[in-house]
Design a protein around this nucleic acid. Structure first.
Lengths: 137, 137
DNA sequence: CTTGAAGCTCTAGCCACTAGAGGAATTAAG
DNA sequence: CTTAATTCCTCTAGTGGCTAGAGCTTCAAG
């Protein structure tokens, strides 16, 4: 049995966040000690690890609720849903990467321009004038 | 003189967002018509374009407040600050790209695995078991 | 002059936490 | 066994960056 602090250390999820997940119905209310403190078992720990991992992958708490529900039942259609959710998410992640790469290029241009030659540095002009952009966005 | 709706169309910033920026002190309160409606001039428009562009580059409203302040004064140290802010931001963007690429790889693995062979599909196991990850995160 | 779109202010909601107050329980040291 | 430090509890409120809606007023086209 683990205290919430233990679980926090093991999962790298902050204590208030664990309580928040409980409140949001992502995890069941765990048993309590005589003094009303939360006590988690291995299963609770696993569930939180699942959640943290899915969060790192960028899934919303709503998605995770679905994924967790699916992970409890083992029917075929549910698993298709898992693939659908992951697939949708993959698209979004790819779009974000593409977008960030454009931003990277522009920021590079901004932050590498010579900071010494003050007056003709185009940083702020770049920020205000869209036509300076290397790519549209 | 442009109405807030005009400005919204020209800058692609939604009307309530423009009012929000005013409330947050990012733009000055514009003149008003006789009937108390906001009227913007070219300068107001430019300022909002600056903001939108900086937002697209991922700067926070706080950063943008600084950048705007700098864009009004033209001293050397300020411009160095611009470079610093942009540089810091570049680092963060690069980190995000790297992280997203790892996620992309993992999501690819999840969403491409055969949805037909149900029972031994490792999607949910992947989500729960960190050791399956191709790279640590 | 009418009507419908667009404007106004104000409050509240969104997500996923995070912070703080004020108090109770647990644990390690002496 | 007692003390002191730490962790835990609940509860409320705040964060960023908007977004939505209610209920009203103003503007512009026909």
């Amino acid at each position: 049995m683990f205290s919430i602090g233990e679980v926090s250390k093991r999962t790298n999820i902050k204590v208030p966040t664990i309580r928040y997940y409980e409140q949001m119905g992502l995890i069941a209310s765990p048993e309590r000690s005589e003094g009303n403190q939360r006590r988690y078992d291995r299963d609770g720990l696993r569930r939180l690890e699942f959640i943290r991992h899915a969060r790192e992958l960028g899934f919303s708490l709503d998605d995770i609720r679905d994924l967790l529900r699916m992970s409890e039942t083992t029917d075929a259609p549910c698993h298709e849903d898992v693939h659908r959710i992951a697939g949708e998410h993959l698209g979004a992640v790819r779009a974000r990467i593409a977008r960030l790469k454009r931003l990277e290029a522009e920021l590079e241009r901004i932050s590498l321009c010579d900071a010494g030659s003050v007056s003709d540095c185009a940083v702020l002009e770049t920020l205000s004038d869209h036509s300076h952009c290397a790519s549209e966005h």
